[in-house]
Design a protein around this nucleic acid. Structure first.
Lengths: 249, 249
DNA sequence: GTACATTTGTTCAAAAATAATCAATTTCGA
DNA sequence: TCGAAATTGATTATTTTTGAACAAATGTAC
């Protein structure tokens, strides 16, 4: 019985049962426990399973469920870096718009103590700034429970009544060639309207989204004045050539 | 039973129930309480739950320090009685307005499963109806952090764009002689606007407020069509004489 | 406010699982 | 066939996990 064969048996058992103990596997395969442990160490190293005390589990069972509102956002450090940079561009007295992207949300922690005026359509942003020195104006309209935001025609009309010093927006994809793209028409509408009524438009966008195009292309990249990201990749430099101010540190 | 498995069970229980006690979890999982405590300590450290005395809560339930979500609200039974009556007057398909009073807030629990459309300027109401079958429209405008509501001129203009089948409103005082009174101009403005655009206006008002006058008198009692209260006091009968429909049971 | 009960943190001990070391076995190529 | 390298197993030491006991802290009732 060689390693390859045991590997197959172990992984099969895991796909089947979800988990397995060292003892079980040793008995089933007819080999010593220590060998099983060594096998599990290797397989865990290859990222094929999760090693627990006494056995192993399938990876998907270990993943922390994401349906917590305070989800451990992916790319948290990158996003925090971006937001730290963005916060430097916000002066006391500014009126800013914040949209409902997960990157923009992380800007909250950096502006809590500023004396500014925030207009937003994002319910998590509202929640987060509730106990802060920030004055908040909420955009009215239809509540999108899934996205935890306010959207729709009335929301856009409402945004259009304001004038912002700066708008901080997230998009799902951006490229020099095809411009800004989004997953949702509703979000695109908000983004367009906010940008149209802002002195300066900042896009907060981690490097993974730059150079990517999503299904709905809704504006040229030059809708924004500034793009703040975490890495100076090829795709980012293309945007600089297109006339955008790029900030990465 | 390893930590990963317990973690799953604990988090699942929390997503389901919102909260769980150490004892419950220990019994359910079949392990000692101290182990559960250690697990909760770790999970709280990972930001996956909020540790309370004797157990744990889901984060999103903690984050909302909604002043009147707690059941210790004054006059809770009276208010619940009033709201139960009010809920009977709401039909499937209705579009209703709910304002930011603590009595009106308690109406939420009785309408969660109705297929209706709710327009509100109250953030606790929004929060409470977030996971329900109700469609929500949020009134936009200035956020009043203390009252947890949206107020102001823009809010009133926004309300004026809608038409409601029924408006459910709270006031701080009401008497046949001096009409409706409030503590705050902002709330009075919302009340007036909502009533003006509703087919029928319901006042939800426990007996302690009836016959009382607060500093700002802003409308005649006949602004409302119906008043729902918990007791048939002298002052309530005066309102009936003034032409209001009175409901107390 | 005090007194009481509950919950928690801490320390210690026992049990289980693991890592480390070394010996035995197998495999493979010259 | 011989020997080096890899694999496997056994033994021991270490680490991790769990539970129990008790003092401290917290919440509750009066």
């Amino acid at each position: 019985m060689n390693f390859q064969k045991r590997k197959r048996i172990i992984l099969d058992k895991l796909t089947d049962m979800g988990e397995a103990s060292v003892k079980e596997l040793a008995d089933e395969i007819g080999i010593s426990e220590i060998t099983i442990r060594r096998d599990l160490l290797i397989l865990a190293g290859e990222g094929l399973l999760y090693r627990t005390h006494g056995g192993a589990m399938r990876l998907d069972l270990v993943k922390t469920p994401t349906n917590f509102t305070n989800k451990i956002a992916s790319n948290a450090e990158a996003k925090d870096h971006i937001c730290r940079l963005a916060a430097r561009h916000i002066q006391e007295g500014d009126t800013i718009f914040m949209d409902c992207g997960s990157t923009v949300f992380r800007l909250c922690q950096f502006i809590k103590n500023k004396e500014i005026h925030v207009v937003t359509n994002s319910l998590p942003v509202l929640q987060e700034l509730m106990d802060s020195s920030v004055k908040i104006n909420l955009v009215g309209g239809e509540v999108d429970k899934e996205r935890q935001a306010v959207h729709g025609k009335i929301a856009e009309e409402h945004i259009a009544r304001y004038h912002f010093d700066k708008a901080f927006l997230g998009v799902d994809g951006i490229s020099a060639a095809k411009g800004l793209s989004a997953h949702s028409e509703l979000e695109a509408g908000i983004t367009l309207t906010a940008a149209a009524h802002a002195e300066e438009t900042y896009l907060l966008c981690d490097a993974s989204k730059i150079g990517k195009d999503k299904y709905l292309q809704f504006a040229p990249a030059t809708l924004a004045n500034v793009i703040i990201s975490n890495k100076k990749t090829e795709a980012v430099l293309d945007l600089a050539k297109a006339g955008l101010t790029v900030i990465t540190d």
